[in-house]
C-alpha cells in the first residue's frame, strides 16, 4: 500500500471544503469511489477528480500535494491515521479531530485545530489567527491534543482553549491565550499585546519576558520553583520540535490573571 496522494491540479479561485477527505471517511472506498466524491467549492460541488490527481491507495496515510490556502477543513473530525500536506492549508485544519496526525510543510489559515479533542497537528510554517480556538459564539476551544507551530501564530491563539497544548517555536500574535479556560500554551519567541486577555485558567509558559511585558490585569505572584515544569519538559522530549531540545527550567516568575475575571490563569516566565 502506498499513501493516498491527492495532488491539486490547478490554482483555485474558490475555497474547497475538504472535510470528506479524512482516513475515517475514506475507509472502505477505492480510488474510483474517492474520485467521484463531491466536494463543496463555492456554490458548486465538484468531484474530487476534477480538483485532484489521485494516486496511491492507503486511506490511512493521505497526502495533499501542491496544496493551497484555499483548501479548508482538511482533517475534519479525523480520529486516526495520518494526513501530510505539502504546501499551505486553508481554514479549520484539523477541526474537531480526536486522534491521528496532521503535518503540513507550509502555512495555515484561520482556526487551525479549532475545537480539536485529540491527536497532533504540526505546522512547519506559520498558523493564522485562532489556533486551537472555539468557533465564533462557542464556549470551548480545543479540549485535547497537541498543536506544534514551528513558525508564528496569528492573533487569539488558544481563544477559549479548554485543554491540550499549543507549542509555538516562533512568535505568537496579539491576544494570545485570550479567554483561555485551561490547557497550556508555550511560546519560545515573542508574544503580542494583550497576552492572556480575559484568561480564566490555564498556563502560558514563556522562556523570556515578552516585549510588551505583562499587562496590569495580571498580578505578580513572585518567583517560584514549580515541580510540574520538569515533568512537562520531559514530555516535550519525544516531540519532533525545538521544544524537545529546550533546556528545561522550573524556576519562574508567576503572574496570575486576568484579574478582570476569575483571575486563575497564570503566565510563567523563566527567570
Amino acid at each position: 500500500m502506498t499513501a493516498l496522494t491527492l495532488k491539486l491540479k490547478t490554482d483555485l479561485a474558490q475555497r474547497v471544503d475538504c472535510s470528506p477527505l479524512t482516513p475515517d471517511k475514506l475507509t472502505g472506498k477505492d480510488v474510483a469511489d474517492i474520485a467521484a466524491m463531491e466536494l463543496v467549492s463555492g456554490r458548486l460541488t465538484l468531484p474530487v477528480e476534477e480538483l485532484f490527481d489521485i494516486s496511491g491507495d492507503d486511506v490511512n496515510d493521505i497526502r495533499f500535494e501542491n496544496s493551497s490556502a484555499k483548501l479548508d477543513h482538511i482533517g475534519h473530525a479525523m480520529s486516526q491515521g495520518r494526513i501530510t500536506i505539502n504546501g499551505d492549508a486553508g481554514a479549520y485544519l484539523g477541526q474537531f479531530m480526536t486522534g491521528g496526525n496532521i503535518e503540513i510543510t507550509g502555512n495555515t489559515f484561520i482556526y487551525t485545530g479549532c475545537e480539536m479533542k485529540g491527536g497532533q497537528i504540526k505546522i512547519n510554517g506559520n498558523a493564522g489567527d485562532f489556533v486551537g480556538a472555539a468557533r465564533s459564539g462557542y464556549k470551548n476551544g480545543m479540549t485535547g491534543g497537541t498543536i506544534i507551530v514551528t513558525g508564528n501564530t496569528g492573533a487569539r491563539t488558544g481563544d477559549h482553549m479548554r485543554r491540550g497544548m499549543i507549542l509555538i517555536e516562533g512568535n505568537a500574535g496579539e491576544y494570545c491565550g485570550s479567554r483561555m479556560i485551561s490547557g497550556t500554551i508555550a511560546v519560545l519567541g515573542d508574544v503580542g499585546k494583550h497576552l492572556g486577555y480575559a484568561m480564566k485558567r490555564g498556563t502560558i509558559l514563556l522562556p523570556k519576558m515578552p516585549q510588551h511585558g505583562i499587562t496590569a490585569n495580571f498580578n505578580d505572584c513572585g518567583s517560584h520553583t514549580l515541580a510540574f515544569l520538569p515533568l512537562m519538559f520531559a514530555s516535550f522530549k519525544k516531540l519532533d520540535s525545538k521544544f524537545a531540545k529546550v533546556e528545561g527550567f522550573s524556576r519562574v516568575q508567576r503572574y496570575a490573571g486576568d484579574v478582570g475575571g476569575i483571575g486563575m490563569g497564570e503566565i510563567l516566565v523563566k527567570i
Binding site: R15, K70, D72, F130
Partner: peptide
C-alpha cells in the same frame, strides 16, 4: 452557515472568491 471570517466580504473580494 455562519462564519464571520471566511464570509467577510472584504476578504472574499481580496481573494477573488
Amino acid at each position: 452557515d455562519y462564519d464571520p471570517f471566511l464570509n467577510d466580504s472584504k476578504r472574499i473580494l481580496a481573494n477573488d472568491e
